[in-house]
Design a protein around this nucleic acid. Structure first.
Length: 119
DNA sequence: ATTCTGACAGCAA
DNA sequence: TTTGCTGCCAGAA
């Protein structure tokens, strides 16, 4: 049988990136998640870097991807530099009710949304 | 085909 | 406790 490097929950086998975008769009408004959580949901636990890589090219996607709702496990806005301006990501988060201090989401834990649990 | 990179995470000192 | 190194997998050059 074909080596299923993808025992991932890929609705469509259109690729890893597509799945990342898909999951990211499923993040509810006012909620937040981490790269590792998404990676774990996709079945490629430990490949959180891939998630970040995918989001790096999320601009390539026609649909809006709420990448600002994805931070690292510390709640740090690691990708803020990729939103054009450094403060764009923080503003988007604050606009959704997040409390961001020193590039870290304070209420990260209570707002956390784990796709593995919610989906 | 091979090498490098990357918006992370986990573990070792 | 904080800092640093390694592993992870998939694209791009």
């Amino acid at each position: 049988m074909k080596r299923e490097s993808s025992h991932l929950k890929n609705p469509n086998n259109e690729g890893f990136f597509k799945s990342v975008y898909d999951v990211t769009r499923l993040i509810p408004y006012g909620r937040i998640t981490s790269y590792g959580a998404i990676a774990r949901y996709l079945g490629t636990a430990g490949s959180a870097r891939m998630v970040g890589w995918a989001l790096n090219t999320c601009h390539n996607q026609p649909d809006f991807v709420p990448a600002h709702r994805v931070v690292n496990r510390n709640g740090l806005l690691t990708g803020k530099q990729h939103f054009g301006n450094s403060r764009t990501m923080q503003q988007l988060l604050e606009n959704e009710g997040f409390v961001v201090v020193d590039d870290v989401v304070i209420n990260f834990r209570e707002k956390f949304w784990d796709p593995s649990l919610e989906l």
